[in-house]
Amino acid sequence: MADKIDMNQKWNWPLWIGFAVAIAGLFSYPLFAQYPLTRDFPWANLLLFAVGGILLGAGLVRAFGRPQLYHGKIFGSIFAVLALLAFGFFAHEIFYVHRQVPLSAQAPRVGENAPAFTLPDQNGKRVALADLLSPNGAILIFYRGHW
């Protein structure tokens, strides 16, 4: 029975690594958002949060289950709360804020005439929609950057 107090406590690495991985799940979003595969659904970030959460959980089980062997009851709990807050913020942004788009009920619909316009191009030359339509029509993209 290893019930003696061990003066050389072991490093409770899952707490540290798990916290680092979970925080990486938040801050790696600008990187993964550059690629449609990881932006359309942020599975890479969610995977990092999941791995971080599992490690943090394992570290807490160690810290509370065998406190004589592993540190981390207090800082592990703080890590877990911070990681949860990071995940909550991420989930709120991705699954709520990103979906708050206007109704655009008056936007042109299929079969309607596209409203005419004339706008300057990058050289300051004025271009009309009609100038762009022959002979094959045009894809009109309202691009706003990554916001």
């Binding site: 655009s104 936007a107 042109p108 619909r109 299929v110 079969g111 309607e112 005439n113 596209a114 005419a116 929609l129 009609a130 339509l133 022959s134 002979p135 094959n136 029509g137 045009a138 894809i139 009109l140 993209i141 309202f142």
Partner: peptide
């Protein structure tokens, strides 16, 4: 937003 507008100006 993205639209395809044909040569006749129809969405």
């Amino acid at each position: 937003a993205e639209f395809y507008i044909d040569s006749g100006g129809i969405v």
